[in-house]
Write a protein that binds this DNA or RNA. Structure first.
Lengths: 126, 126
DNA sequence: TATTTAATGCAATACCGTTGCAATAATACA
DNA sequence: TGTATTATTGCAACGGTATTGCATTAAATA
């Protein structure tokens, strides 16, 4: 299936680029309210994830965030580099931290994925 | 409001005790299917959490788990001792690990909460 | 410009947690 | 032990959110 460029996709892509950080479904919905259908947002975000343009992050508040992962760099998500994610409880900004997650599992355990979240105030909000 | 002991509460409490690990809403639902209404399970679990009998944990898969926290010990949840949680992707067991989460936030950041999840195979499933 | 079909909007559906309310039953007290 | 009180339960209904079907629109290509 060959993708097509549409206003909806451009709008959401621009939104994510301008934000610089990960945005949740409802944050995106708020910003494009009236411009497009709610279903379109779901489909656009899903297509972005399928195409590797964005990735979906499940935050510690149970919400999904979508990020272009330009600032945090794709390499962080590879090479077994598990890093912390930070969510500011004031401005709701979500970002990847450089800090690496170190962990030694008990005998007999096998690691698959790591999801580490820190909440608090970012440098702008503290 | 004075709580009353009921078959529904006993059943779910026994379930959690026997499991020895945290159970998700739908795991509990599966086990008591037919015995009681879906709504009752929600209400029983909520009352348990209100009364401090169980605590609610949001896992990295977006599901809530309920745990008596006998084996992992309440003290782990206090004293600023942030520990890893483990979820086995095979047997779906959820448990607290002894491993402490260490983290140095960037300049100007303030920490509030930490949620660290590891998935993989536990010693029984690896 | 015409053709193909991806993308969209709208309606309908599914899922999950919650709420209202009448019926039931656990507890306290006479 | 019997009765009164009211927490608890089941059922139906609701609300929010994600998904699907389908007819229509419009982006890409020739």
């Amino acid at each position: 299936m060959r993708r097509r460029n549409t206003p909806a996709k451009s709008t959401i892509l621009t939104l994510l680029k301008d934000a610089g950080t990960a945005l949740s479904q409802d944050m995106i919905e708020d910003k494009v309210k009236g411009e497009m259908d709610r279903v379109t947002i779901y489909r656009v975000l899903n297509s972005f994830c399928e195409d590797g343009i964005t990735h979906r992050i499940l935050a510690d508040n149970g919400k999904y965030y979508f990020a272009l992962c330009l600032n945090c760099g794709e390499e962080k998500h590879n090479h077994n580099h598990d890093h912390f994610h930070f969510r500011c409880t004031k401005c709701e900004k979500v970002e990847c931290l450089d800090e690496e997650v170190t962990l030694t599992l008990p005998q007999g355990y096998v690691k698959q994925t790591i999801s580490s979240w820190v909440t608090g105030y970012c440098n702008n909000c503290s």
